[in-house]
Design a protein around this nucleic acid. Structure first.
Lengths: 242, 242
DNA sequence: TTTTACCTCCCCAGAAATGGCGGGGGTGCC
DNA sequence: GGCACCCCCGCCATTTCTGGGGAGGTAAAA
């Protein structure tokens, strides 16, 4: 199968990770980890709300380039699936049924990504989202054994990569979430669950005009151009929950 | 100082956690973990933005009751701080300066929560948020030593508690995602970033009426009552990314 | 092959949202 | 006391969205 079956927890690499001083260091550690675990790839990948992405890992520059150029972010079942999920997930459990997904999969394998994968979603405040992935090429049983063995290590690595990446890229941090007033939150929340403005006003027992003031105020705070935008921003910044 | 200084990783309790079949089991394991680490408290606490909360842990029922009744959720610096943070955090690094926060702190200590604490924020899709906390009463240096030693264990416990809690409360999970057509996704995405319907139509180079058909179709698929609702659902189900 | 889903376009009229103007009262901070 | 913010309300007109019809073509799945 190729990868080491039994190793000490994270093999002391977590310390190396924690000592990283730059993205290049992270890159080097990910290469070392990849070799240590004997897998094909090991990647930390940050996806911002606006679609920009960066990260470090062992994918070939070719593949990374292609991924971005082709807009694979929008069809990659790993990203899509993890985005909707709470927990680490084996790629086999994702939905590869769509044609686009299968085409993507084929392309990915052709670029050496491997047929097996295990990805961990990581989130921060305001909808920040990153992925930590280990991928390999091997039979299902071997992979199942590997993931069972190293699941915890991978969780810790995911955490540590995320922590370091954020430390090293302070510019990527979210805009300061401008706090919304309680009423504004209530208003946007009710709008987000489908109430019309009139219904929201009735629910909050205020005049429709007052409601409008809240929504406008929230729009302003969020830098939104209209209500849809405001609700979307409030949602993706974690200011409201539906 | 009272707690065990050197222990094997998570002391085999992670397996117990993974075997839990009910919230009561989780409760029991948290009690065992608390004893194992020799700390005052160990709590997993789920917080939804709508204010409902549940969890398991070793806080006294009195304190839990009081916390809910007093609406401490809104002033608890641990919750507030972790909600805006990426990483695990020591309570000392939080902002306790406000009057409400200090009153809360005093009350918490009076209820045996402890003067030291370490909390890990955990997030799911759609802004779901939970906290895993270990608290204790001891001098700063001892606590620093404890957190340094067991930080990784705590991260793994946080993950596992979260995983099990979600498994055991399937009602808390988001609904399955209904697939949208590419055009529908484009339409909703552009709407979510603030474009008006006319602008979206122009951007997609289609007539405004065609766009309307997409939005209506998406609304129908998502079971949404209006555009705002549709965008909110698409966002929170991870069907679109802003 | 038939069905299904997707994409595209058109009209109309009523409902809803927005933008701008004005007013009031309350709290808490410097 | 002034300032900032939160909470609440009214009227105007305009723009935008929504809901009900209709049509036709392609491409993939059953």
């Amino acid at each position: 199968m190729g990868f080491a079956a039994q190793l000490p927890a994270a093999g002391g690499f977590l310390e190396q990770l924690e000592a990283a001083r730059s993205l290049e260091d992270l890159q080097a550690v990910s290469e070392a980890l990849r070799a240590h675990y004997g897998v094909d790839h090991l990647v930390y990948h940050w996806v911002s709300a606006s679609g920009e992405q960066y990260g470090c890992g062992t994918y070939s520059p070719d593949w990374v380039q292609r991924y971005i150029e082709k807009g694979y972010l929008r069809i990659d079942p790993v990203v899509q699936g993890c985005f909707q999920r709470f927990h680490p997930v084996d790629w086999k459990r994702l939905d590869w049924s769509s044609k686009a997904a299968r085409a993507f999969q084929k392309d990915a394998i052709a670029h050496g990504v491997g047929n097996q994968g295990f990805s961990i979603p990581i989130r921060g405040p305001n909808g920040q989202f990153a992925l930590f992935t280990v991928s390999h090429s091997c039979p299902d049983e071997d992979w199942a054994q590997f993931t069972a063995l190293h699941r915890r290590d991978m969780i810790l690595m995911a955490h540590t990569f995320n922590e370091k990446a954020l430390d090293l890229e302070p510019g990527r941090r979210p805009e300061a979430a401008q706090p919304l007033s309680p009423r504004e939150i209530e208003a946007l929340t009710l709008l987000a669950v489908g109430y019309s403005r009139a219904q929201v006003a009735e629910t909050l027992a205020i005049s429709e005009h007052t409601l409008r003031v809240y929504v406008e105020s929230a729009r302003f705070k969020l830098g939104a151009m209209n209500t849809v935008h405001a609700v979307a921003r409030a949602l993706s910044r974690g200011l409201i929950v539906v």
